[in-house]
Write a protein that binds this DNA or RNA. Structure first.
Lengths: 189, 189
DNA sequence: CAATCAAACTAACAAGTGTTAGTTAAATAT
DNA sequence: ATATTTAACTAACACTTGTTAGTTTGATTG
């Protein structure tokens, strides 16, 4: 059994609180209370509030980077790559809905790690954009403004963390295939 | 010429700061500095920090409520109603990209007004859902899970405020029609 | 000219902030 | 049994927070 260290418990609890109120509105005393200890005791396990945010965000951002790098280097058709991107987002967001909130809303409170985070995000968007461009060139997807395509799809995928907890009945495979179908084929009959 | 009151200036500046760092991370001293005055002077014009947030969020939420209520009561086909919803979001988000950030990310910091805000939001989502259900019943749109449809479209529309500032070249009509086309017809060729 | 008003100011407050230092008690390893 | 480690504690710090009270200044109005 993979047992959690105390530090991991703290980070997980913090992520949950950060999702509810945002990083800045959560105090170390709030976090301590949620853990059933005093604020000062947190510092036996973590070095700073900042560090908690860093751990949450950077590990997720790197997970996305690894994911898209694998998808990118396959030789499948573009539509299938898109399918895999949807699956990647569903999978990561399902495992960690709390952390995804920080990734989306609290990244600006990173300090030393902010440039690194921005690099990862830009890189991710570029890989995504390249897949779309390739799809357009190979006549697999419509020749619409790439930025609007990218924005539209990515917005939906980035919001998954908000909806997954409300739809626990839907399993990951179903959600992925429904979503892919809507994003690729639209809602028109 | 419609001249702005000092209070409106403060609210506008606050919205800009709230978009950059979130409500909780912006202090009254930050806001005062951005206005070129001292923090205490803000209180000649506003009653509290809370009140600023309320003004930003509630006015926007009511604007959406008014908008969808007009769209709902028309006799047009469902696909056209969707088109009008897209136009509504593009229009409001274009006029007030800063405020939209608070509406999306800082609503949980409302206090007395939180129940009212939640009521407006639930109502909006219900109206939207009804339009989708009607479209499915009348065979205008695919018979997919309504919640996934709603989530997918709404996520894109709610993120518009993040993208509009980066795409100043695209005018509202173009953006609306591109977006409608992608949401309705998908990206498949 | 005197009075009013809008909008800034200084000074201060009580409460809350992240964090450090030093201590204690129980569990684990030698 | 002794030593070490883990993980909690109390007390306190320097600073920041939203906000209030009272004052000053310059423009507008009677």
């Amino acid at each position: 059994m993979k047992q959690e260290t105390r530090k991991e418990e703290i980070i997980k609890t913090a992520a949950r609180l950060f999702k509810e109120k945002g990083y800045s509105a959560v105090t170390m005393r709030d976090l301590a209370k949620a853990m059933g200890i005093k604020a000062a005791s947190l510092y036996n396990h973590i070095n700073s509030k900042q560090e908690i945010l860093k751990e949450i965000i950077i590990s997720l951002a790197e997970e996305f980077t690894r994911g898209i790098s694998i998808i990118k280097s396959s030789e499948k058709p573009c539509i299938e790559k898109l399918n895999e991107i949807v699956a990647l987002h569903v999978s990561i967001a399902s495992k960690n809905t709390y952390g995804m909130a920080s990734l989306n809303n609290d990244w600006m409170h990173l300090e030393e790690q902010l440039p690194y985070y921005l690099e990862l995000r830009t890189n991710y968007e570029n890989e995504f954009r390249n897949i779309l461009k390739e799809g357009i060139k190979k006549n697999e997807i419509i020749d619409s403004d790439v930025e609007v395509l990218l924005f539209s799809i990515l917005s939906t995928l980035r919001s998954l963390y908000l909806w997954i907890p409300k739809k626990e009945d839907l399993n990951s495979e179903e959600l992925t295939s429904h979503l892919s179908s809507i994003l690729i084929n639209g809602i028109n009959k």
